[in-house]
Design a protein around this nucleic acid. Structure first.
Lengths: 220, 220
DNA sequence: CAGCATATTCAACATTTGTTGAATAATCAA
DNA sequence: TTGATTATTCAACAAATGTTGAATATGCTG
């Protein structure tokens, strides 16, 4: 489903850069490593994308619109399904997460690398403020609005703090550090995003309710 | 409360390295930046700590034992307080988190930088497998055992997946990306770890119960 | 085929990097 | 004070880095 192939090799450069940036971060990767991995001369990255920083941004941008549009559509679909009350928490969170799982399920390792790169950027005090807003804020605000509607009477700060918990859980899951594999003795595999989301959805939904649901609110 | 001052300048090197590594990662920092920030010649870092990688590990090691011992003592204290049943979820999680808040509250910005560095390492697919285990696994296993005791009948995988959610929420909070500040329009400040933990404890406790508590288990 | 735009490589540059060995300063015991 | 140990700086290295301009290949259009 690629839009247009401006060049076969320029796409390969993006793929390799994606993989290496996700693993080693911006400064941990050299243009020569990228070029070598793509079977291409060093100067070609400059020709197609300009400076190293521009290449980094190009990698980050490439899949952002597509994935966030899928998430937005999932939210809209949930909202349409449950009009006029708005969807319950679980469905909102599922709309936020499952498109990320769907993307990886296509066997395309590029998506796995990309989401690990987003995790790297989102957790970086240097990169997150510079790069996340432009492509992710709009979507996040939509979801937070939906969460607000599903949690009537909740205090705003509580919702934001809870969203950060969700975002953190998601970020670590996408980073694929393999730490849970070792801790669990192999019972859990950090490559298995479905298994992670299967728990993350009820986990965070329960957390939102506990923190944001005003005590003694009418049930049902 | 520093153990021993092997040299006033060597400690300054560690402080500056801590701050810069936390912000830019291992490869994003040069020895000359560290030396310059510490008001010291480049060669001095080599003299005290050896290679760059050794300096990185020295920074990571310096505060690890102290903070994890505080967390372990907090757990033991909670366990003693509630013998023989074992403490409830909230107290276990609080013992896992609050010592990190206490450390930062001393006004020592070094602790803030250190915890951001741990967040960087813990979220990195490259560094986490290499560095987290030796100094953090023992503590984590203790906490997971306590969580198991507090959630009788829970499936092991569920506990590990839930722990990863907790670890992710904690990691992003420590990373101090400032993203929540912007999203909330200033209502939440990512420097305010107390406010984050105030929500994280009930949030994750509710999540653990929802995922790990076998449906229809006898209540109280 | 010729002509042209795009794509790609080649060769080289000025800087910056981690690291090292020798030189100098500071500390401290005798 | 001496001497020796430790701490610190100085000067320099080879290697690697991002970047660039010119040269060459490739593909398309007439």
């Amino acid at each position: 489903m690629s839009r247009k192939p401006p060049s076969p090799k320029s796409e390969r450069i993006l793929d390799v850069a994606e993989e290496l940036f996700a693993l080693h971060g911006y400064d941990g990767v050299t243009l020569r490593q990228i070029a070598s991995g793509a079977g291409v001369d060093v100067a070609l990255a400059n020709y197609h994308f300009g400076k190293k920083l521009d290449l980094f941004k190009a990698v980050f941008d490439r899949r952002a619109v597509e994935v966030n549009q899928a998430r937005l559509e999932a939210l809209r679909s949930a909202q349409a399904r449950s009009a006029p009350d708005g969807p319950p928490l679980e469905e909102i969170i599922a709309a936020f997460l499952t498109p990320l799982d769907d993307a990886q399920r296509g066997g395309d390792s590029g998506w796995t690398n990309y989401l690990a790169l987003v995790a790297y950027i989102n957790n970086s005090p240097y990169w997150a403020p510079k790069m996340m807003s432009s492509l992710f804020d709009k979507l996040v605000r939509e979801f937070i609005a939906a969460l607000k509607a599903a949690l009537p009477g909740a205090r705003e700060e509580d919702i934001y703090w809870c969203y950060q918990n969700l975002s953190g859980a998601l970020t670590l899951a996408l980073a694929k550090t393999g730490r849970i594999d070792k801790l669990s003795g192999g019972k859990c595999k950090s490559t298995d995003i479905s298994a992670a989301f299967e728990r993350m959805i009820p986990f965070t939904a329960a957390g939102f309710r506990r923190v944001c649901q005003p005590a003694g609110s009418g049930k049902k």
